[in-house]
Design a protein around this nucleic acid. Structure first.
Length: 799
RNA sequence: GCCGGCAUGUCGGAAUGGCAGACGAGGAAGACUCAAAAUCUUUUGAUGGCAACAUCGUGUGGGUUCAAGUCCCACUGCCGGCACCA
């Protein structure tokens, strides 16, 4: 009998050996494969078994690629700037630079326990000035191309985080991170013109090998629509009000118009007798929070007293104000067609405004309309020269018709807004801009980068909308790089998303001081072939990264414009009762305990076995026991058989090739939970046999990506003095996989009634004869149909 | 409200339209043991039957097919995304 499996001993041994002799090195001969994890932010809580899952999946995939002859780029780093790190520092009373370093050290220790083939020479940290020098450099390039600009506008303000938020960071009117209600604050902020890339961000999605769900989310977020702008002259005045509509076909039905309370003309359109009411409404709207505005059940509004002229039919339409019209989408003004839009319908009902149907529903006009008819399907009515046209056709033609008539033009619009890029917090990359009274905003010259974040004692956020850096006079006061006059540094910092928007480019040239990445290395090793992480980044990080990569492509820094060819979203590991793991619920399972009790290899395999990798799964302590038992059985099976010199029987050869085929197919389909099942079934079958050495070797080789320490140990015990990871991934021989005899189920009228054994090469007639004999009691004289699906099933249909 | 996804034993889950419930967990019985743990063996969807076996069974109702967990239609429930974007 072999020594029982001692996971600690085996794993310690191979951890040391691999540290001295890494199994994945670049020999310059093999093609590259870049398999990347979304890098973690080093929180004080450390990793739980949920974080592990993605890292295990990516390591299994990396090792599989390694054994298929690739040089695998598989790096790890730390996303260490940003609010979570800073809040943790404030809570624990340590300077963020100190607590961040401590957290990184702890998480690095935990990540190393995964036993992954990470290349630690590539390790990076977004708070390292050598790294963020290049985040700043990218900002300067964006500025030079006019894609970074300053703007004063009402912004999402989180009173708890004391910082502005990008639209992407507001969820249900609340702060994505701390769930406080978001308010509006008028601030001058740095914006990045992501909208300039809206079409490319949208159109390039098609070609990406990403989950459809994520592509859909990005598509909806960008929210492109096609329609027209139409100019409505204001009665008795020189102004025109321009509206955006996706339904210019319904222009004849526009019976009133509504402006956002923030619209430039809102105040001036008020007539004398309406002035008080208008000003009151505008003031009220300004005070409403996002949440109030979103949750409004009833439409509110006020009539300005003014009228506009419908440019198509010359009708007078009253101009109203209402906060259901968004100031920052389209033109901040809409034409209202209550008969064919739910919101306009509700507004018209509430304020008793006329409703004119212009598309016939089921060929006729609706009597006593109770809800809007919103389909673009039907014949036009009440529409003058457009009467009789099909609305679906007209919808497409109308933008060009209004263009020809001279009061409108075709127009695309997007829900996507420009990216609010500055934060009023300490723990971030300083924005490399100097404000000069004469020259305006001037970028810090590239030779002076990085602008190092000064070490301050007081880094608490302020309520004023100013960064804590603003209080550091000796840092703020500088000279203008253009004219030499006294000038002030920009005191806002970048958001957490800055470093993560490009870090994946840096790993392949992590120590370069002259460029963010050497172009030759970029061409050779980039982009990322496989990106693995949680779905929570579907729009934020993944959209920002795509934007920055496209920009870097456009300025010639890299030669590709999509950073991640393939994306895989792993599901979360939930607590034992199926709820999210959290400290407050006390249901966090630490990998440290699991490793002590069962070892790294067991935890790796259990993380895979727990369920389909893309699906959330609840942690179950007795589940990991089962995997541990399995690995003990593998250990015993290999070591008990290794010196037996058992004959290589046909059965063993067949089972071996079936295993190779199953494991390879399932691995390629990312069905990793069923790969583990396949190993278990194989082990169960072999435990009753004497197993030959070739089969043992194939088994250990296939197990290597999953349980690398055990596989390496068993490989050595089988008499090898090189690493199992130098082995080529085995190939299945289809012919050897074939069974000699097959068990064929026999159905009568679709119900299984018997099973017959036939030779694998038996012909149809032979099988059918055997089948009919087996179920002869159930057959009548009237056989309607005889079906034989080769090697699968027989079905005999009788009357 | 709109747009996605999912629904299978006691539990996690498995099934290119072809034997539903692989594999694991849990349960039950047995072996070993003074005993327990560990380990090993057998068993484990429901109902009826001593048994062979039969009938039912993949959220609900219908349909296509020789054959449906799988395809189509309608519905219900849960999860996720968006949410006054004109």
């Amino acid at each position: 009998m072999a020594e029982p499996y001692n996971h600690a001993q085996v794993e310690d041994k191979w951890t040391k050996i691999w540290e001295e002799h890494p199994v994945n090195v670049n020999d310059g001969k093999r093609p590259k494969y870049y398999c990347l994890d979304m890098f973690p932010y080093p929180s004080g809580a450390g990793l739980h078994v949920g974080h592990w899952r993605g890292y295990v999946i990516s390591d299994v995939w990396s090792r599989y690629k390694l054994m298929n002859g690739y040089y695998v780029i598989h790096p790890m780093g730390w996303d260490a700037f940003g609010l979570p790190a800073e809040n943790y520092a404030i809570k624990t009373g340590q300077h963020p630079s100190i607590s961040t370093q401590k957290n990184i050290d702890n998480i690095r220790r935990q990540v190393k326990q995964i036993g992954a083939i990470y290349d630690w020479d590539m390790e990076l940290n977004t708070t390292d000035p050598k790294f963020y020098k290049w985040s700043q450099w990218i900002f300067v390039q964006l500025f030079k191309k006019g894609l970074a600009y300053e703007k004063e506008m009402p912004l999402n303000w989180c009173p708890s985080c004391k910082a502005v938020l990008a639209n992407e960071e507001v969820v249900d009117g609340k702060c994505e991170r701390c769930h406080s209600e978001v308010t509006k604050k008028n601030l001058r902020q740095w914006m990045l013109k992501i909208t300039a890339y809206a079409d490319r961000l949208l159109d390039d999605l098609d070609a990406l090998d990403w989950p459809e769900k994520v592509k859909k989310m990005q598509t909806d977020w960008i929210g492109r629509s096609y329609g027209a702008e139409v100019d409505f002259p204001v009665e008795n005045r020189d102004e025109k009000i321009t509206v955006y509509t996706t339904r210019p076909d319904t222009l004849h039905g526009a019976t009133f118009m509504v402006l956002a309370p923030e619209h430039d003309l809102a105040k001036s359109l008020a007539t004398d007798d309406q002035r008080d009411a208008v000003e009151k409404y505008i003031a009220e709207a300004a005070n409403k929070s996002n949440v109030d505005r979103m949750q409004a059940k009833e439409k509110t509004g006020v009539f300005t007293g003014s009228y506009a002229i419908n440019p198509l039919n010359g009708n007078k339409v009253p101009i109203w104000l209402s906060d259901y019209v968004l100031a920052d989408y389209g033109t901040g003004a809409i034409m209202c067609v209550p008969a064919h839009d739910d919101r306009d319908f509700a507004f018209a009902k509430k304020f008793d405004l006329p409703i004119v149907q212009v598309i016939a529903k089921d060929g006729k006009e609706i009597e006593n309309m109770e809800e809007a008819y919103t389909e673009a399907a039907g014949t036009m009515i009440n529409s003058g020269e457009w009467n009789g046209m099909e609305s679906a056709v007209l919808k497409k033609e109308a933008p060009h018709i209004v263009e020809e008539k001279g009061f409108g033009r075709a127009k695309k619009n997007y829900k996507l807004r420009d990216w609010v890029f500055s934060r009023q917090r300490y723990w971030g990359e300083p924005i490399p801009i100097i404000h000069c009274p004469k020259c305006g905003a001037v970028p810090v010259p590239e030779k002076d980068l990085p602008v190092v974040l000064p070490n301050v004692e007081s880094y608490q956020p302020t309520d004023t909308g100013e960064s804590p850096l603003a209080a550091m006079d000796e840092w703020v006061n500088t000279t203008c790089p253009c004219c030499g006059a006294p000038a002030k540094r920009e005191t806002n910092t970048m958001p957490q998303w800055a470093g993560s928007s490009w870090y994946f480019l840096r790993y392949v040239d992590a120590h370069n001081n002259d460029a963010l990445v050497d172009r030759e290395k970029a061409d050779k090793y980039l982009p990322v072939d496989m990106y693995i992480g949680g779905v929570e980044h579907a729009v934020l990080h993944l959209l920002y990264s795509r934007f920055w990569t496209m920009f870097l492509h456009d300025i010639g820094a890299v030669d590709f414009d999509e950073p991640f060819k393939k994306l895989f979203n792993q599901g979360m590991i939930l607590g034992p009762k199926g709820v999210k793991m959290s400290k407050s619920l006390g249901n966090v399972v630490s990998p440290d305990d699991m490793i002590d009790n069962y070892g790294c290899d067991t935890l790796r395999m259990y993380e895979l076995f727990i369920g389909p990798p893309q699906q959330d799964s609840a942690w179950d302590d007795s589940g990991i026991e089962g995997v541990y038992r399995f690995l003990c059985k593998v250990w015993n099976l290999v070591l008990d058989n290794k010196d037996k010199n058992a004959a290589e029987t046909k059965d063993l050869i067949r089972l071996r090739h079936q295993l190779i085929d199953t494991v390879t197919t399932r691995l390629q389909g990312f069905n990793l939970n069923t790969v583990v099942s396949a190993f278990m079934e194989f082990n169960n079958k072999l435990s009753k046999m004497d197993v030959d050495k070739k089969t043992l070797e194939a088994y250990v080789t296939l197990l290597a990506p999953f349980a690398p320490h055990m596989a390496e140990e068993l490989w050595q015990q089988l008499g090898h003095d090189t690493s199992v990871f130098k082995e080529k991934w085995p190939e299945a021989d289809k012919a050897a996989m074939q069974e000699d005899t097959l068990e064929i189920p026999v159905q009568v009228n679709g119900k299984i009634r018997a099973t017959v054994s036939v030779a694998a090469d038996a012909g149809k007639d032979e099988v059918l004869a055997l089948a009919k004999e087996a179920v002869k009691d159930r057959l009548t004289d009237n056989i309607v149909k005889e079906i034989y699906v080769p090697k699968k099933i027989v079905n005999i249909v009788v009357k």
